[in-house]
Amino acid sequence: MHLDCSAATSKAVSGKITGIYDYRVRACNAECGGWSAIATVAVELPPDAVPTISNIEVGFTSRQPAAARRPDP
């Protein structure tokens, strides 16, 4: 993506989807300087909707600790 030249020292970029993006810049007056080092930005958008749970099955076994058991008569 090429962004137009301006006197700004920062630029907001929006509308990106989840992914990894590399950016670099250079200054231009009468001539342009060299490109900057690459800056990598990771974008991770939340899901469109929260997943729902429709059915849950739970199983367990209840046991008394050995100290709480009564001996058989």
Rank of each mutant, 00 (worst) to 15 (best):
A30M: 13
G34M: 05
D22I: 05
N55Q: 09
A67I: 09
N29D: 14
A37G: 12
R69V: 07
P51F: 01
C28M: 06
D48P: 00
D22R: 06
D22A: 08
R26E: 01
D48G: 01
S62W: 08
I56S: 03
V50G: 03
A12W: 12
T61E: 12
A68D: 13
N29Q: 14
T61R: 13
S62E: 12
A42H: 09
P47D: 01
L3P: 00
P46I: 00
P51A: 03
D4K: 15
Q64W: 04
I20M: 11
C32A: 05
P46E: 00
K16N: 06
I17D: 14
P47R: 01
G15E: 00
A68S: 11
P65Q: 09
R63S: 08
P65C: 07
A67D: 12
H2M: 09
V43H: 00
S62N: 06
L3Y: 15
G19P: 00
P46G: 01
D72F: 10
R26G: 01
G15P: 00
S62Y: 14
S54A: 15
D72N: 08
D22N: 11
T61H: 10
A30S: 13
A67L: 13
V13Q: 06
G19C: 03
S10D: 10
V25R: 04
R63I: 05
H2G: 11
V43Y: 03
R63Y: 07
A67R: 12
A8H: 10
G15N: 04
A68T: 09
T40E: 09
C32Q: 04
P47F: 00
P47V: 01
L3E: 11
Q64P: 00
A67E: 14
I17R: 15
V25P: 00
G59F: 13
L45D: 01
A37D: 11
P65L: 08
P71I: 07
K16F: 12
C32M: 06
S14W: 04
N55E: 12
T52F: 06
Q64C: 04
S10K: 07
T18S: 15
P46L: 02
T40S: 14
P73L: 05
G33Q: 07
G34Y: 02
T61W: 09
W35G: 00
I38L: 08
G34F: 05
S6Y: 04
R24D: 03
I53E: 05
R24Q: 08
L3T: 10
G34R: 03
E31D: 15
V50K: 12
T61D: 13
R70W: 04
T61Y: 06
T40H: 03
A42R: 13
A49T: 04
I38V: 15
A66T: 08
M1K: 13
W35N: 05
A7D: 10
R26F: 04
C32P: 00
V25I: 11
A7P: 03
L3Q: 13
T40G: 02
I38T: 14
Y23F: 14
V50F: 09
D48W: 00
A49L: 07
T61F: 07
P73C: 03
P73T: 04
A42V: 10
R26W: 02
